[in-house]
């Protein structure tokens, strides 16, 4: 078994979070992950407040044990942030994962309600601020990941965040197998958060075309667009992302025009299955995923491999000097 502070802090069998995914991670996926011993996360970016309440209720009804934890993801720059923040308190959600900024305005309320808060951080500065606000852990998310991305890679961000704060760090971005889990622990993390690999889980309701597109992806198939707008996004290359990239370089177009071209694009791909004209957000690790598995199998396989590679790591240590 691999046991870290994250298992203890959140009451998990495995120190793994399923990252919140707008329009995609619902109560069903979150419950599957939490039932498998990880932390399932429900996205609050969906059809609105009622939908969020419904997904939380669905998740609870599917949990094998009412004590299994789960979380909701609050995207701080979203117009729905305030409503989602209130629902977390009202429905006594055990954990909140925040994205895109610092959760300063909501922190007191959440902590008073006994909610554990875990912000996703793209830099050491944000990590320190989050720790000071009372976060119980932080997620260091590198730019390999799918969805909204920062500049730093998981490889360099994780150890620096681990040095910057005394609370546990969870590594995210590019982790899709046991080697990634083992490496994250070596970089100073006490757990991992995965998005792209759970996109392909059997219990994930994303459109079948979306999953197929991920299974077909090669290592070089993702692209980052939206830098010009200040919120870069990583997705798979397709007609939509290529056109978005072209538009970004076209100085005749206003930011407004580009924003509106991008609006609704994730929903189009994830729900309607239009993987040509929609945004198929996915991380660089998409190419490492080949088959649909249950959330349980994803986690079991990942941690079995992590244990194996960690157990074998001693082979690199020797008393002898190499003269090769």
């Amino acid at each position: 078994m691999i046991v870290t502070e994250i298992n203890r802090l959140f009451g998990l069998k495995y120190p793994i979070f399923q990252g919140g995914m707008a329009w995609i991670s619902n109560g069903q996926l979150a419950a599957a992950v939490s039932n498998a011993g990880g932390l399932g996360v429900i996205s609050s970016i969906n059809e609105g407040e009622e939908a969020l309440r419904r997904e939380i209720t669905t998740c609870r009804s599917l949990l094998h044990n009412p004590d299994f934890p789960f979380a909701i993801n609050v995207m701080l720059m979203s117009p729905q942030a305030q409503a989602a923040a209130d629902i977390a308190v009202e429905m006594q959600v055990p954990v909140v994962i925040t994205g895109a900024g610092l959760p300063t305005p909501y922190m007191k309320k959440w902590l008073a309600a006994g909610i554990k808060v875990v912000p996703v951080v793209p830099s050491t500065g944000i990590a320190k601020m989050a720790a000071r606000l009372g976060a119980c852990a932080v997620i260091a998310e590198g730019g390999e990941s799918g969805g909204h991305v920062g500049d730093l890679t998981t490889m360099v961000l994780t150890p620096q965040v681990a040095d910057a704060v005394s609370i546990p760090v969870i590594a995210a971005g590019g982790i899709a197998d046991g080697r990634g889990v083992a490496a994250s622990l070596m970089l100073g993390a006490a757990g991992v958060q995965c998005g792209t690999c759970f996109l392909t889980a059997k219990e994930c309701g994303v459109h079948a075309n979306y999953k197929q597109k991920i299974f077909q992806a090669k290592d070089i198939d993702t692209i980052v667009t939206g830098k010009r707008l200040g919120h870069p996004v990583r997705s798979l290359k397709n007609a939509f992302s290529r056109q978005f990239a072209d538009m970004e370089y076209n100085t005749n177009l206003s930011d407004q025009e580009i924003e509106s071209f991008g609006a609704g694009a994730l929903r189009r791909a994830a729900l309607e299955g239009d993987v040509q004209n929609g945004s198929v957000m996915a991380g660089q690790c998409a190419a490492m995923l080949h088959e649909e598995k249950t959330a349980q199998q994803i986690i079991v396989d990942m941690f079995a491999q992590a244990e194996h590679v960690l157990a074998c790591a001693g082979k690199f240590l020797t008393e002898e000097e190499s003269h090769a």
Binding site: L102, S123, G125, I126, K128, M129, R132, G150
Partner: peptide, 19 residues
Amino acid sequence: DSLDTVEIVMSLEDAFGIE
């Protein structure tokens, strides 16, 4: 950008001894 702003705020906290 917002990340720079956080760095600057932290330097100012040190300079003024405030949070």
